[in-house]
Amino acid sequence: MQPPATRTEATRIEATRRLWHYRHPLVIRLAHWINAVALLVLLMSGLQIFNAHPALYWGDRSTFDAPALSITAEAGADGASRGIVQVGPLRLDATGVLGLSKTAGVETERAFPSWATLPANQDLATGRRWHYLFAWAFVLNGLVYLLYGIGTGQLRRRLIPDGDQIRDIGGSVREHMRLRFPEGEEAKRYNVLQKLTYLVVVLLLLPVMVLAGLAMSPGMDAAWPWLTTLFGGRQSARSVHFIAANLLVLFVIVHVLLVLVSGFWNNMRGMVTGWFSLGTVRP
């Protein structure tokens, strides 16, 4: 058994308290979770749409004989089907994951497996409906976030690094590589790497993805033909949209990993209730 704490130790324990900081206002929290749901539906329904024609091209036409990327299945030398991912001249066997996967225990030729698409079965029309509905939800939610952020100053505080942060960007990189994260007063604001990453995502990656998506729409093409021209053709816009979506998935993966290693419950509490713990301090 451990010996009971002495009077000095008890006093020390009672004298410490946890310092809280209201880090995320309600509008920011709602926008974050709406974005999370919308992006998940957009990703899964987008993969359903991609499955209808699992190839990407540059330019305005689908050159079926020379795609920039394709995910298909073909018969091997032994007669067995194999899933093949081709990027230019590079060919990779992706059987079981991409190109050829099991659906209800039966091998099925499809670019992305059923568990990754919405709906799970091959249904282009329904996939488009989900995609278009949540695309508008995503855009409107983003506009609310931007207007609120600009009006309250939250956007500047969350996206624009302070001067001292820019000067110490090398130190921030080293601390991240060692999985050491800001504590105390410094944890009240996003660090420089967070701000720069969010700045690129919010002001570059997301707008490019949305514009490329609009450029694929025949209605938008008729109203704003310059938009399709901007991307070098409808097929180029489709490829840019696909690449931007994958970069966004990569961002989300890194974001979730950093949430886990920097304090999962504290980060989740902050994004659910707004309150973020800065650690224990003495009065």
Rank of each mutant, 00 (worst) to 15 (best):
L19D: 13
Y22M: 11
H24A: 07
H24N: 13
V27R: 05
L30M: 15
A31N: 14
A36F: 12
A36P: 01
A38H: 06
L42H: 02
L43F: 15
G46Y: 02
N51C: 02
A55H: 00
D65T: 15
D65E: 15
E74P: 03
S81F: 12
G83R: 04
I84H: 01
G88L: 08
D93K: 12
G96R: 08
G96C: 07
V97L: 04
L100E: 08
T103D: 12
V106T: 09
T108H: 00
F112K: 06
A125I: 01
A125G: 02
T126L: 14
W130K: 02
Y132C: 05
F134P: 06
L140P: 04
Y145S: 08
L146Y: 13
G149N: 07
L155S: 04
L155Y: 05
I160Q: 08
P161K: 02
D162L: 12
G163A: 15
Q165W: 09
I169H: 00
I169C: 07
G171W: 12
R178P: 04
G184A: 10
E185Y: 03
A187T: 06
R189E: 15
Y190G: 02
Y190Q: 12
V192K: 08
K195Q: 14
L199M: 15
L199K: 12
V201Q: 08
L205D: 02
M209E: 03
M209N: 05
V210N: 04
V210G: 04
G213H: 01
G213A: 07
M216Q: 15
M216H: 10
A222T: 09
P225Q: 11
T229D: 15
L230M: 13
L230E: 00
G233L: 03
R234H: 06
V240W: 01
H241W: 01
I243F: 09
I243T: 13
L248P: 04
V252W: 05
I253Y: 06
I253N: 08
V256L: 15
L258M: 14
F264C: 11
W265P: 02
G270N: 06
L278P: 10
V281S: 10
